[in-house]
Amino acid sequence: MIWQLDLIILLMVVICGISAISIRDLLGSAIMFGAYSFMMCLLWSIMGAVDVSFTEASVGAGVSTVFFVAAVFRTTRRTRD
């Protein structure tokens, strides 16, 4: 376990999380959420929880991003708050 790598990925998780809730464009927010999931997946695999990391990669970064994009495509890209 390299702590520098750990720290960089943890910082990326925080940055992606904050930007996912603060971006005004909902499509961008969905993509940032996918990036957040991917960073969490890397973090899980660093901690040795490979099964959880696998689930996070397939569900969080894969399918749920598609669902978000589909929902944005059928509604609107703008947010009111």
Partner: peptide, 9 residues
């Protein structure tokens, strides 16, 4: 690692 859930997704 893996199983029904991940494979299904």
């Amino acid at each position: 690692p893996g199983g029904g859930f991940q494979g299904g997704v």
